[in-house]
Each structure stands twice: as structure tokens, then as C-alpha cells.
């Protein structure tokens, strides 16, 4: 559901009601002078939407103004990011950034490129992990890598971040897997729990309770170091596989060209939001993996990852 859709919905619900138009204050030079729009390039109700809305609602206190969430879904996020990049760089429009911006850039030259946006901060990072069923044919990374039959990986969708994770493993051990795309991570996880695929690569929140009850095994994390949350799970490096770190992440960006003063205020407010105990508590409830990167670190990380993603997608045969 996007803004236009909401407008339509509101227009319908409001039939018969008379609406009074509110004028916006003009000519006020101090930022923020009005409501700040937070572009969410995903459907309302999904996990990214909830994470962004939660962040936005706490950003209101730090900025001292209203933050309105706007869902502009479509084309794997590309629609929302295109709108964000094209918006006025006055600090009144910011947007949620997720891993998919790298995928889009690699797969579609007309999608928003990294240099069109100003990445202000990252607030969440979830290293992905490899899972198998405890009663499945493969119980370790070695068994998957040395399997004498085709290994099937369930994915959340074609070319998505979880597909790419499995692709990274395939690339580093120089073998091919078959990928079965489901509709979203829900279908992917069901197929794993129901033993219809051999393995999945996914972010750890949703499968965690199946690991606890012994249904699934968490074999390895796509990270350089073990995760604090899962200290018993080794990294691929430890197991002797040269698989690069791979994580999904969420951050905030604005269109390029912000005024210095505006940018400073905004960046400070974002950091303040991140540090606020209220946000931290709520984020923990939502099982977000809070990891802060400042603008420079976040931009650097994106630029480092971009060529890797492009190469991987080419190897998977997903670029045109």
C-alpha cells in the first residue's frame, strides 16, 4: 500500500466529511520547519515497515516535529528510492534504506544508484545464517558442500538477499545449488520446517524458536566474528570456508545536496533517536539487531559491498 492508496482510502472514508485545508508555514529558515516525511519503499505491515515506523515515531522526539511514514512500494523498493532521490534536499524527506538497493543497482542500470543518495546512518544489521533440518540429509556445512546430489536451497524470492547468501556459499566452494524461490521469507521458512528443501539462508529472528526446539540446526553465520546472540554458532571461516560476511541491514538516507546545517541537525537527531532508551527497548521487542554505523562508515560499507553484489548476481545468472 502506498501513499496514493492511502489517500484514496482516506478520501473514500472521508466522503461526506468536509475537510479543512491547512496552510504550511513558509519562509521559516530554521530546520525542521514542518513535518518530515519518512519514505518506506515497502508495503505497510511488513518487518521493514514496522522497523522504520518504530524508528520514525522516536525520531519525532529528537527532531521536535511530526514524522510521517509514507509507504511507496514497488519494483523491489526501487520505486520508493527513486522518489526519495528525486525529492527536494531540504531535510523534510528522508527514507529507509535496505540491502535491496544494492541488488537493484546491480540488476537494473536505471534504478537509483548509490551516489544519488546521502546515507546518514545505519541502525540495524542482521548477519545471515545457514540452517538445515535436524532430520534432513545434511547435518553440517561439510555435508552440504560434499553432497553427491543436487542440494536445494529455499529462498524468499528470486535474487533476494537470502538467495544471494546461498549464492556466496556456492561461489566460495565452487559448486552449484538449485534455488527454489518462495513468496517471501514465510514460505521459505515453512518449506524448511516441512523439509521440502535441504537448506536455507535467512536472518536469524524468525527461525530462532525452531532452533531452540531442535527442529532446525543453525550451522554457520555469514560474519567475520561470531554473533553475540548466538555464541555457539561458528563462522564459515572457522569451519574452513572462505565465505565473505553477508548481512541484511536497515538505515536512513536523504537525497544528495542537503544544506550543511540541516544535515548536522538531522544526523544528530538520528543518533539521539538511536541512543534513546525508549527506542532501544521497543526495538528489542521487535527483535531488531541494533548496530549503529555513522554516515561515513555506512556509505563506505555500501560502496565496498556494491561490486561484490554485482559480481555475485552475474555469477548466479541474474543480471541481464
Amino acid at each position: 500500500m502506498n501513499t496514493r492508496q492511502k489517500m484514496a482510502a482516506l478520501a473514500v472514508v472521508g466522503l461526506g466529511l468536509s475537510l479543512t485545508a491547512c496552510g504550511t508555514a513558509e519562509g521559516d529558515s530554521t530546520y525542521p520547519s514542518g513535518a518530515v516525511e519518512l519514505v518506506i519503499p515497502w508495503d505497510a505491515g511488513g518487518s521493514s515497515d514496522l522497523a522504520a515506523r518504530l524508528f520514525g515515531s522516536h525520531l519525532e522526539d529528537a527532531l521536535g516535529t511530526t514524522v510521517t511514514a509514507m509507504n511507496i512500494p514497488g519494483a523491489n523498493g526501487a520505486q520508493g528510492w527513486a522518489d526519495l532521490a528525486a525529492s527536494e534536499p531540504d531535510g523534510n524527506t528522508i527514507g529507509l534504506i535496505t540491502y535491496d538497493i544494492l541488488t537493484n543497482q546491480a540488476m537494473d542500470p536505471s534504478a537509483t544508484q548509490l551516489d544519488e543518495l546521502d546515507f546518514l546512518m545505519q541502525f540495524e544489521e542482521q548477519p545471515l545464517a545457514l540452517y538445515v533440518h535436524s532430520e534432513g540429509d545434511f547435518q553440517s556445512v561439510d555435508e552440504i558442500v560434499e553432497a553427491d546430489r543436487q542440494v536445494t536451497f529455499g529462498t524468499s524470492g528470486l535474487g533476494g538477499v537470502f538467495h544471494q547468501g546461498a549464492g556466496l556459499l556456492a561461489q566460495s566452494v565452487d559448486r552449484e545449488f538449485s534455488y527454489v524461490p518462495f513468496d517471501g521469507s514465510g514460505g521459505q521458512l515453512t518449506a524448511m520446517v516441512g523439509q521440502h528443501v535441504d537448506a536455507i539462508v535467512i536472518s536469524p529472528t524468525a527461525p530462532q524458536q525452531y532452533v531452540e526446539d531442535g527442529t532446525l540446526l543453525m550451522l554457520a553465520v555469514f560474519a567475520d566474528e561470531r554473533s553475540e546472540a548466538f555464541p555457539d554458532v561458528p563462522t564459515f571461516q572457522e569451519l574452513g570456508y572462505d565465505v565473505p560476511a553477508h548481512s541484511s541491514f536497515r538505515g536512513i538516507a536523504a537525497p544528495k545536496g542537503l544544506d550543511d546545517e540541516v544535515r548536522t541537525t538531522l544526523v544528530e537527531a538520528l543518533k539521539e533517536t538511536y541512543d534513546s532508551p525508549e527506542f532501544q527497548t521497543k526495538a528489542e521487542d521487535l527483535e531488531l539487531q541494533l548496530t549503529y554505523l555513522d554516515s561515513e562508515e555506512f556509505t563506505g560499507q555500501l560502496n565496498t559491498m556494491a561490486p561484490t553484489v554485482a559480481e555475485l548476481l552475474t555469477n548466479l545468472g541474474l543480471t541481464e
Binding site: G45, G46, L50, D213, D285, L286, E287
Partner: peptide, 17 residues
């Protein structure tokens, strides 16, 4: 799917647990 999100916001993870 939307309800799952609403539950997670409340700190409730549906499932076997």
C-alpha cells in the same frame, strides 16, 4: 502477515513457543 508484524511490535513471537 500484517498481524504477525503487529504481534512482533508487542514483543510476541508466535510459533511453537
Amino acid at each position: 502477515a500484517v498481524m504477525l508484524g503487529a504481534l512482533m511490535v508487542q514483543g510476541i513471537q508466535p510459533g511453537p513457543r
